[in-house]
Computed example of a mutant assay.
Amino acid sequence: MRGKGNAVATRELRSDAAANRDRIVEAARAELSKSNGTADELKLHVVAKAAGVGQGTLYRHFPTREHLLAAAYRDELTELVDAVAPLLARHAPLDALTRWLRRLVEYARVKRGVMAAIEASAWRDLYSDQHHRLDEALGALLDQGKAAGEVRDEVDVTDVILLLGVLSRIPESDWERRVPTIIAVIIDGLRRK
């Protein structure tokens, strides 16, 4: 009997640990949203308190600020990737692509500070398996658009990413005015004539 009880306690602990981790990441995401993505302003003791855990629990899951930022990034990236199928189910492919690009661009805007806060080595170690997911999501949108005759056949993921690169040059003060126009120009360029 005793062995069974220990196994159950271990499972409960693992479930509780997973719940703690999820609360910590969610609290970090909420704090990052409050600071408009400024990672330097992310106070780990504030995150721990908001998650209802001690700082020791936070550090057991995330030994550095970069590890916590990486987890928040992965969760938000998953939301972006997971948004593709519902958008395609509700909208024509080019409209779905437009809506998804707006989400992606807004995400990139808010996360400028997060990305800048992560050192190159940490970026390689913590994010190396993530970027292909965005490429795959964008590829699915483009493929659906091509199949529907809405997107030019010669366009690929790299073309769109290169076009989106111009957004990094927009000053925050011009963001609201310029981004909708730039997205519209990109979509017009992707449209099959």
Rank of each mutant, 00 (worst) to 15 (best):
P86D: 07
E136R: 06
L44P: 05
I183V: 04
S121M: 06
T158E: 03
R169V: 12
H91G: 13
R191E: 07
V166Q: 01
R99I: 09
L104A: 13
R11I: 00
L77G: 05
P93H: 05
W100I: 08
S121D: 02
V46A: 14
A70W: 02
E76G: 10
Y127F: 14
D16N: 08
A83I: 01
L167C: 07
V8E: 01
A30C: 09
K146P: 05
A184P: 15
E154S: 12
G54E: 00
E26N: 10
A148F: 05
L141H: 10
G56L: 14
V151P: 13
H131C: 00
L44K: 10
K4P: 06
N6K: 14
H45S: 15
D159F: 12
H91F: 13
V46H: 08
H45A: 15
A17H: 10
A120K: 03
Q55T: 09
A117S: 01
R65D: 03
A122S: 00
A147F: 03
Q130A: 13
S35W: 10
R169H: 12
R2Q: 11
H91K: 04
A92D: 03
L101R: 06
G5T: 06
S168T: 03
L42N: 05
P93E: 08
V160W: 11
K111Y: 14
E119C: 05
G52F: 14
L87Q: 09
I187C: 04
L104Q: 06
D95H: 15
E76P: 09
V114I: 02
A7D: 02
R74V: 12
Y107D: 12
A89L: 07
R169P: 13
L68F: 05
L138F: 12
H91L: 14
R90N: 13
E79I: 08
N6W: 14
H91R: 11
A18H: 04
G3C: 14
T57W: 11
R60K: 10
A71Q: 07
E106C: 06
L94T: 09
R192H: 11
R2Y: 08
R2C: 10
G145Q: 00
G56H: 13
A184S: 14
N36M: 12
A96D: 00
G56S: 13
R178G: 13
E41K: 13
E119M: 11
A72C: 11
E172G: 14
A51M: 10
G52H: 11
A147L: 04
H45M: 15
A27H: 03
G139Q: 01
K146E: 00
S173F: 13
R103N: 14
R60T: 06
A137M: 08
D156V: 13
L87T: 08
V151N: 07
A18K: 06
